[in-house]
């Protein structure tokens, strides 16, 4: 079997500013090249925290466990090192950066990822091709990053970056949230257009609907900071029909999110 792209072992995560607030309480997760995993779970179960911690966000602290990326332990790596190695996080709430154009961001990001300055002509050709592939207008690239973007535009901007960066792992943190059906389809088609055999994808979502467009190989359910169920696509459909309550009841868990000292 091929080396996993992502191998999370016994990961425990708390909030950096409040180490007593434990959010992720021991997660194991393996994503191999070409696989699509969906991580589902009720509000407050720790999905976004897990995504941020895997990407190296300084807002969180890893208390135990490791994150391996392509066989390397990157638990102590800075976020920029992880990104250069081929990890990409699509943010749930992409940060506006006034004054910095998408073009400037992408040029800097590409230079960092490849370790060399990308010639202007080559960069523009790649940018045009990716914009076309995602059915996005060229004027988009001249706008300030996420500044005054609609919800749909923000998510498409994330997918544009995903397309330009050629990562080996893409973590899509609630890429479907705040999108209407048309915007969701556009974004999902974008992700599908960018699929490559070496790319592993981890989709984090509340709802099954994005999974109608991007078929997962494995579905995990995260509750109170632990993966309590893993299964095939039918698990997502089951959640869509019945919600999380039957799973919670079966496990003797309440609906409450993870809390300090709990």
């Amino acid at each position: 079997m091929s080396t996993p792209i992502l191998d999370v072992r016994g990961l425990e995560v708390s909030v950096a500013a409040h180490p007593d607030i434990k959010i992720v309480r021991g997660v194991d997760l393996v994503v191999r090249p070409g696989e699509i995993h969906a991580l589902m779970g009720p509000n407050g179960s720790g999905k976004s925290t897990l995504a941020s911690a895997i990407a190296g966000s300084p807002a969180y602290r890893v208390d135990a466990g490791q994150v391996f990326f392509k066989g390397e332990n990157m638990t102590a790596w800075r976020p920029d090192q992880r990104a250069r190695a081929g990890m990409f996080l699509s943010f749930q709430y992409p940060t506006p950066i006034p004054g910095v154009t998408m073009v400037n961001l992408l040029r800097g990001a590409l230079k960092a990822r490849r370790g060399v300055e990308v010639p202007a002509r080559e960069f523009l050709a790649e940018l045009r091709a990716t914009l076309q592939q995602l059915k996005m207008d060229e004027s988009f690239a001249r706008r300030y990053v996420n500044d005054g973007f609609s919800g749909g535009e923000k998510k498409r901007a994330e997918i544009l970056q995903l397309g330009m960066m050629h990562p080996e792992l893409a973590i899509l943190d609630e890429t479907d949230s705040g999108l209407d059906v048309d915007a969701l389809r556009t974004v999902a088609e974008g992700v599908n257009a960018l699929r490559r055999p070496e790319l592993g994808i981890l989709i984090i979502t509340h709802y099954q609907r994005i999974l109608d467009y991007i078929r997962p190989d494995v579905v995990h359910v995260l509750v109170q900071g632990r993966i309590v169920r893993s299964g095939g696509p039918d698990l997502a459909q089951q959640i869509e029909r019945n919600g999380y309550d039957p799973i919670l009841q079966e496990l003797g868990l309440s609906r409450e999110p993870a809390k300090a000292g709990a």
């Binding site: 190296g56 966000s57 807002a59 920029d80 940060t95 961001l105 990001a109 960066m165």
Partner: peptide, 11 residues
């Protein structure tokens, strides 16, 4: 904003 840019590979 800093984390956003760092997560794009910028030191």
């Amino acid at each position: 904003a800093l984390f956003y840019l760092e997560s794009r590979g910028l030191d």
